[in-house]
Nucleic acid binder design. Structure first.
Length: 271
DNA sequence: ACCTCATGAGTAG
DNA sequence: TACTCCTGAGGTA
């Protein structure tokens, strides 16, 4: 679920459901009881996302900061909220609906200054209007770190996760082990622009699809693949399977603690 | 029933 | 690099 596109969707959903409205807040699980008590009865004035961080501004100038981590999940509903099931960290009710948050990495109230500190340590977000690829290039273009690692570093680019990084590098034909400074400025622009396109599509669809129509498995005589992340992709978690474009066996390696996937044929080494 | 792994990231060492 | 947060899906038994 949670790469940047998911969080931007969550911001829009909060805005639609609670924006400008007074909300009731509670922590059925109890682990956010104090924060929920302070939120209870406030008006949601702003719902924003920067990378994977959800920022909900309330009328007391405090901001609720939620980061889903790897487990976190939101469930929205219309009408009266049901009795909470399981470990609901935060429940918001208001307007005609409710939202339950489970298992987040972070759920905390921030003072205005804290929000700036948080945002200052995040890189530009391809989904935001203020996202500037040049700011990221200042880090990427001088780094000896593999571009695959740089793309997962939220202080370089905010929003992409393991799926988008694998898929954008495939689509742009970039060897994931290439150091950042081995890219040209134009290649970086290509990666950035493709991220913006792919992630915007992810916000609209609520899932990650990266395969171009001419490479869709249907067009190749095979049924679409159904995977846990719910989308159609070139290389993510396809290790050992033939590349949809060139037929090479998709490779995988653990890099900086995460599984990286790429096609050795399409993403030729320029190292 | 039990085991492993996952779209993330801070922190200790 | 490894552990932590501690959910849920999928595979194995």
């Amino acid at each position: 679920m949670p790469e940047g596109h998911t969080v931007h969707r969550l911001a829009a959903e909060h805005q639609r459901m609670f924006g400008g409205r007074r909300v009731g807040a509670s922590s059925p699980q109890g682990r956010f009881a104090e924060g929920a008590a302070r939120l209870d009865g406030r008006v949601l004035v702003d719902a924003d996302a920067h990378g994977k961080h959800l920022l909900l501004g309330f009328d007391d100038d405090r901001t609720l900061h939620v980061h889903l981590g790897i487990y976190g999940k939101y469930v929205f509903g219309e009408g009266a909220a049901p009795a909470p099931v399981g470990a609901v960290r935060l429940r918001l009710v208001g307007g005609s609906g409710w939202a339950d948050l489970r298992g987040p990495n972070a759920c905390e109230l921030l003072e205005p200054g804290d929000v700036k500190v948080l945002r200052d340590r995040l890189g530009p977000d391809p989904l935001r209007a203020d996202g500037d690829p040049e700011v990221a290039w200042r880090r990427v273009g001088r780094s000896r770190t593999p571009v695959a690692v740089l793309l997962m570093d939220q202080s370089v680019v905010a929003g992409p996760g393991n799926i988008y990084r694998a898929e954008v590098l495939f689509r742009q034909g970039v060897d994931p082990r290439l150091p950042g400074r081995g890219l040209s400025r134009g290649r970086w622009q290509g990666i950035w622009d493709d991220l913006a396109v792919l992630m915007a599509a992810g916000v609209r669809a609520g899932r990650i699809d990266t395969v171009r129509p001419e490479h869709m498995p249907e067009a190749m005589g095979r049924p679409p693949r159904v995977d846990g992340h719910g989308g159609e992709v070139y290389v993510y978690r396809r290790a050992g399977l033939p590349c949809l474009v060139c037929g090479s066996v998709v490779a995988t390696v653990e890099l900086a603690g995460r599984n990286l996937f790429w096609c050795p044929g399409c993403q030729a080494s320029e190292v």
